[in-house]
């Protein structure tokens, strides 16, 4: 019986969702109780787990789970286009909370390229429509730029600091003091060991007092300090909360792509993705070799 339950919890955890909430859920379950079981299974089936990790690294390869938007031919063509773009430009692994530098070419200023550094506060869309939102404070003014991941005018995407935060969206940084979203535009790339787990930054943000852009007390945020609101706000938030939804298996199923389909999708593009990873590693080595000569 215990075996069945543990297996079931694993299948739930691997039954990933493109939705951020469940992604976080799966991460947490992995790090806590299910970690032992996951380790065992890792030894059993490495390739399967590699496929399972792809869904976190390349979430945009999973299609929109809404059944009325699905079509296998369209999804296949879309993946082919994504792969052919990825084989030309390095779109690295990154998460919400990472600090990125994006270099784009500007049609109105053809002689120069434009580089923007900022923290990724949101990732959304799937397929060729995948995009991410970068935020930084420039001249005391909060600036946000939405980049399309497969836009051909993007020349380079660099991950300056690879880390995760406690939340799936950091939109609350808009209501936080500026120092939480200020990053040096000339920031150096922070080294990250290959294959090491992505560190989780457990920083708690202290929000500015109300008025806010959204009612953050209702969002069940993890990376925020006590909001310091009167009791009635929390009471209302409690009334509107839907804690039973995480037990609604049908809802979970409708919101996610089934595990078998995910494996099928990633198995189809696995060799291409591996090629891309090898090229990335080669280039990385090249760059690290070149740098010391400059410093000396």
């Amino acid at each position: 019986m215990i075996n069945i339950i543990s297996k079931y919890s694993l299948s739930l955890s691997t039954l990933t969702r493109t939705t951020n909430a469940s992604k976080l859920l799966t991460n947490r379950t992995k790090t806590t109780a299910a970690s032992n079981i996951v380790k065992k299974h890792k030894q059993d089936d490495n390739s399967k787990n590699a496929l399972a990790e792809y869904r976190l690294i390349y979430p945009e390869f999973l299609p929109d789970p809404r059944i009325d938007f699905r079509n296998s031919v369209r999804e296949k063509l879309e993946r082919m286009d994504m792969i052919s773009r990825r084989s030309q430009i390095d779109i690295p692994e990154f998460y919400v909370g990472c600090i990125l530098a994006v270099t784009t070419s500007d049609k109105h200023n053809p002689a120069k390229n434009h580089r923007f550094v900022g923290i990724c506060i949101q990732r959304s869309g799937c397929g060729l429509r995948a995009n991410f939102l970068l935020r930084n404070v420039i001249d005391n003014q909060g600036v946000e730029v939405l980049y399309e991941m497969y836009d051909p005018t993007i020349i380079r995407i660099e991950v300056l600091r690879l880390e995760k935060r406690l939340d799936d969206e950091l939109l609350y940084l808009r209501d936080a003091p500026q120092e939480y979203s200020t990053f040096d535009p000339n920031m150096e790339i922070e080294p990250h060991m290959e294959g090491a787990p992505v560190p989780i930054n457990t920083i708690k943000v202290k929000l500015k007092p109300r008025p806010w852009l959204e009612r953050w007390e209702r969002k069940n945020l993890k990376g925020v300090e006590d909001l310091g609101l009167p009791e009635r706000f929390y009471k209302r938030a409690g009334e509107l909360a839907t804690p039973w939804e995480k037990y609604d298996l049908m809802k979970q199923y409708m919101k996610t792509v089934p595990e078998e389909e995910q494996n099928q999708i990633f198995a189809e593009i696995q060799s291409e993705l591996q090629n891309i990873e090898i090229t990335r590693k080669k280039l990385k080595r090249k760059r690290t070799f070149l740098k010391p000569s400059k410093l000396a």
Binding site: R85, Q88, P110, P152, I155
Partner: peptide, 23 residues
């Protein structure tokens, strides 16, 4: 634009006697 190609620079292109920038 073909996804398997990448941008080199912006050049002025003439199509239907109107000039515009293309990749």
């Amino acid at each position: 634009h073909k996804f398997s190609f990448i941008i080199e620079e912006w050049v002025t292109d003439t199509v239907n006697s109107t000039k515009f920038l293309i990749i």
